[in-house]
Design a protein around this nucleic acid. Structure first.
Lengths: 191, 191
DNA sequence: TCCCTCATGTAAAAGGTTACATGATTTA
DNA sequence: TAAATCATGTAACCTTTTACATGAGGGA
């Protein structure tokens, strides 16, 4: 059976260090989760598949005061599969951004409500950007490794960079759209 | 039953003019399809649902030399539903870009193969950008309407603008990543 | 006492892709 | 003659989300 993209996302984390399913779920919030999100209900069955195909193995770790956990470790087979996948050609991703879809029908909307929508989006994306910037500051403390392309920190930074660039671009576009709406929308309708 | 996002994508097109399922499928390639993609196997059943809920109606149009088609028209109910949806608050989209996921594990890769991957991506995104730029040129011919926020052309241009900005940002990031890989990757491994 | 965190899952439903099915006309 | 375009769909499968299920320990 072929490995799913989620499978590679999990292997990508396990190639750096061993994690339990629960910890993988938290990692899939930051920083990878900013790019590839999954719920526990998808993660646990996926880990079982990885284990069945011998791409990862687990060890049960008992804890005092906390429930036992299954700590997964990548196998050599898993590392090879990941390595092969990393440089394989990829198609353009299918873009599915609801705000952009809404923008296509923005001409139907009351401009003031439309402006409110874009302000809400600026808020969300600014929060996201701030998470990235905080993460960037943390990365810069281990500065030596970031420029070495064989270091995981380099890869983390390259991933983070596109996130930073994306959010800044997106926020700028929201501001531009608001400016357009304010210039032609509000005065015409209410004036 | 709630309307799906694809349903709104179709209504967004039908709010501008009537289309057959086949024509909607082609529209979902450009310009909306750049942001919201769907196959015919998803479009036809979705249109049947819209019709069942009286958000759109169809008329069979016979053609000489070509098969008959069902031309769908949005209803007042459909237009109202679309209008309400347009300005409703939206969450951050779940980003699922395989290249960015691969970038997270780039430290495992042979730098020369990694560079080749990013060159391939620059090619794909440059092609996409050129489509956008061509579309922009066409839009500029009807210049008067683009600045009026109640005109569909304004909405189209706002949608297009984020596409242009996104692709330019993305291509820049690919170049940046290649530069990093060339600086530290290639000499170390083979030198 | 109630909610949050830790920890692992299953079941059902929704959303999306791939493959299949049909059939006429036009273009290479 | 073969492939592409027009035109509409169904079936099977895969991916993702939502809801359900359990249970211990710690903090407000």
């Amino acid at each position: 059976m072929a490995i799913t993209t989620l499978g590679y996302a999990l292997l990508g984390l396990l190639a750096r260090e061993s994690y339990s399913g629960y910890d993988l779920g938290r990692q899939l919030k930051a920083p990878i989760g900013f790019y590839w999100h999954a719920r526990y209900s998808q993660i646990y069955p996926e880990l079982a598949k990885l284990e069945a195909e011998e791409l990862a193995i687990f060890e049960v770790v008992e804890q005092h005061d906390l429930p036992a956990k299954k700590v997964y470790t990548i196998t050599e087979k898993g590392r090879e599969a990941l390595k092969e996948w990393v440089t394989a050609a990829t198609d353009l991703p299918p873009m599915r951004d609801e705000l952009i879809l809404k923008t296509f029908s923005l001409w139907l909307a009351d401009p003031e409500q439309a402006i409110a929508l874009f302000h809400q989006q600026i808020e969300l994306h600014t929060k996201q950007l701030q998470h990235y910037e905080e993460f960037e500051r943390k990365l810069e403390e281990d500065k030596e490794d970031v420029s070495n392309s064989f270091s995981p920190l380099f890869a983390t930074y390259a991933t983070l960079k596109v996130g930073l660039d994306y959010e800044r671009m997106y926020i700028q576009w929201c501001h531009w759209t608001i400016a357009q709406l304010e210039r032609t929308g509000t005065s015409l309708q209410k004036g």
